[in-house]
Each structure stands twice: as structure tokens, then as C-alpha cells.
């Protein structure tokens, strides 16, 4: 790691004051499960690291105005074990359970899960977010088996690693940020963006902003996430699908389906949602939704298999939600 300063403020205002205006100057330290590694890999070489661990108001899960409020510094473990999360948002808790690493549950945070950097090996080896080597786009003819099959027409072909983001988006969650100009909120899907240049980041967060919390409306929608994992231990899913819908007289309404690990952002699949809207969530419809989800897929040279995995993810997520009591 390059040398850096360290600060451990006890209030949000102090934390924000300690942050720089440009990327590269400072980094916010939450659980450290990604940032510390990223600094070792020199993906980021900040001059100062600002730890949020002493800011108590960033922790905890509470009910507020018909929504569940989740502090950004809430570790994954207490979050996924929270009875309200388990009861109302299985799409979130099951996605985290699949990770299967107590050492991550204890340290990694909700905010960190949303802000973590991509796992793309070209990025991690220092070829940049856009994986360029002397003008060559490495994800084009290189090893892209884990890369994007959607949203990959630009230079960015990594997949967004967040396990929670698809569920949050499917559940119409909002994310809340605080910066020097005050607080702002946005729909979770608007938080993520596809970078078009190397210095950019994958989210709307400004360098001197902090994610404070996430709110998820308690609207009684059924929801589920299905991840294709070939391991029962700490590992990344190959693809994921989160679904949320209301069931009225056996018919699905207000459907939202969001895919994970298939694009540089969590990937909304409106065609799949439309195929379910107004239909009974049975096997036949679920298969049709899976097929609709991959209609626009544009696999790279080595990741065509992911379209099959997306089909299955969507189908199984729908059926899991349908079977909920």
C-alpha cells in the first residue's frame, strides 16, 4: 500500500470535511473488506483514509415512515439476521446468505456492498476499469468468462459485484447520501452508472460524499433472489436475478426484475417483468420471463453460457417468490 493519512471522525460532518473533492485524494473506510485489498492492489492510492466506524448514527436497522431504514455502516451479518429483513425482504437476506463467510458478514457493510469496486481481473491487475492494454480492449478478445452480457457496448465490460443492489432496486429502495452541500436521495437504480472513462466510478457518489442509509418501502410485495453459485462457500455468483411483485387473485402485478453480475450496473430487465405482469407466476410463465430477460443479451467471446444462467435465475427467482406464503 502507498502511505496515507488516517482519520477516525466521530460525526458525519467531520467525516465529510475530511474528504477531498477529487477521486484519488481520499477514500471512505467502512468495513474494509474491499478497500484494504483495493489499496494493496493499488487500484486506489488515496492520500487519506477516513474511517466511519465511530459514527454510530450510520448503524442499525429501523422502521421509519412505512419503510425499513438501513444504516450504511450496518454490517451484513446483523442486517441479514434482522427479523424484519428476513420477513419482508428475502430477496436481500438470501443473497447475503449465499456468500457464506462469517468473516465478511461481521465486517462488510451495506454501504460497502453498494460501493465496492468491480472484481474484474483486468481492473484488479492494474489495467484500469476499462481493461485497456496499449489500446487493446482486453475484454474483447481476452478472458471474459465472468464479464458482462448486457450493457457492454461501451468500453466497460466488468460486472457490478453488489449482491444487494438487484434486490434493492427490485424493491424500489432509495439511497441517501450526505455531502458538503447537504443530503440528497435517489432511487437505487440511479445510483449506479456505467463509466466511460478510467477515472470515473461506478456510482453517482461524489468523492466527498458518504452513503448514510438506504430505505426500502414496506409494501408487502413478494420478493426473492436466485443466484447461480457453484460453491457453497465464499465466492461470487455467476449470475443473479431479484424479483418483486404483488400477487392479486393469483396474478402478478407491479413486477420488477433486476439482474446481477451480468452488466456494469445492476441490470433492470423490463421485458422479463412485462412477461410476468398480469400473469400467474407459474412455471410456464417463469420460463417465458427467463427467455424474455435474455432477448437483448450481447455475450462476449467466452460468456455465452451466462444467458442460460440468467434464464434459470429469473425462472427460479419468480417461482421462489410465488411459493412464498
Amino acid at each position: 500500500m502507498k502511505t496515507f493519512e488516517y482519520a477516525r471522525p466521530s460525526s458525519l460532518d467531520e467525516a465529510i470535511e475530511l474528504l477531498g473533492e477529487d477521486w484519488g485524494q481520499t477514500e471512505v473506510l467502512a468495513g474494509g473488506t474491499d478497500l484494504v485489498t483495493a489499496m494493496k492492489q493499488r487500484i486506489t492510492t488515496p492520500d487519506r483514509v477516513v474511517s466511519l466506524q465511530d459514527i454510530e448514527e450510520l448503524r442499525g436497522v429501523s422502521e421509519e415512515d412505512g419503510a425499513l431504514r438501513i444504516g450504511a455502516m450496518t454490517p451484513i451479518g446483523p442486517f441479514m439476521r434482522d427479523s424484519r429483513v428476513r420477513e419482508h425482504f428475502p430477496a436481500l437476506s438470501t443473497a447475503m446468505e449465499g456468500m457464506a463467510a462469517p468473516q465478511v458478514y461481521s465486517r462488510a457493510t451495506i454501504g460497502g456492498n453498494l460501493c465496492q469496486r468491480p472484481r474484474c481481473w483486468y481492473f484488479r491487475l492494474g489495467y484500469g476499469l476499462l481493461a485497456q492494454d496499449n489500446g487493446r480492449v482486453m475484454t474483447e478478445d481476452g478472458e471474459n468468462r465472468y464479464h458482462a452480457i448486457f450493457g457492454n457496448d461501451g468500453a466497460a465490460r466488468f460486472v457490478h459485484p453488489s449482491g444487494l443492489a438487484p434486490g434493492f432496486i427490485a424493491l424500489n429502495a432509495e439511497i441517501h447520501l450526505l455531502g458538503p452541500d447537504g443530503a440528497r436521495s435517489m432511487a437505487m437504480e440511479d445510483f449506479f452508472r456505467i463509466p466511460s472513462a478510467d477515472g470515473e466510478r461506478e456510482t453517482a457518489l461524489a468523492p466527498n460524499e458518504v452513503v448514510t442509509h438506504v430505505t426500502v418501502p414496506l409494501n408487502g410485495k413478494r420478493n426473492a433472489t436466485y443466484e447461480v453459485r457453484d460453491r457453497g462457500s465464499l465466492n461470487w455468483p455467476l449470475t443473479a436475478a431479484a424479483v418483486a411483485f404483488s400477487l392479486n387473485n393469483g396474478v402478478a402485478e407491479d413486477v420488477r426484475i433486476v439482474l446481477g453480475h451480468v452488466a456494469p450496473t445492476p441490470w433492470d430487465a423490463p421485458e422479463a417483468a412485462e412477461a410476468l405482469e398480469g400473469a400467474a407466476p407459474d412455471e410456464e410463465t417463469a420460463i417465458a420471463c427467463g427467455n424474455a430477460a435474455v432477448e437483448g443479451a450481447t455475450p462476449l467471446s467466452r460468456n455465452g453460457y451466462k444467458t442460460q444462467l440468467v434464464r434459470t435465475s429469473v425462472k427460479r427467482a419468480i417461482l421462489a417468490a410465488a411459493q412464498q406464503a
Binding site: R8, L29, G32, T33, T37, S51, Q53, S106, R107
Partner: peptide, 10 residues
Amino acid sequence: AYACSILAME
């Protein structure tokens, strides 16, 4: 916790 991913100062 993974001690490799925690800064000593933390």
C-alpha cells in the same frame, strides 16, 4: 474477521 483486511489503527 480477516485480520489482513483491517487496518491496525481501526
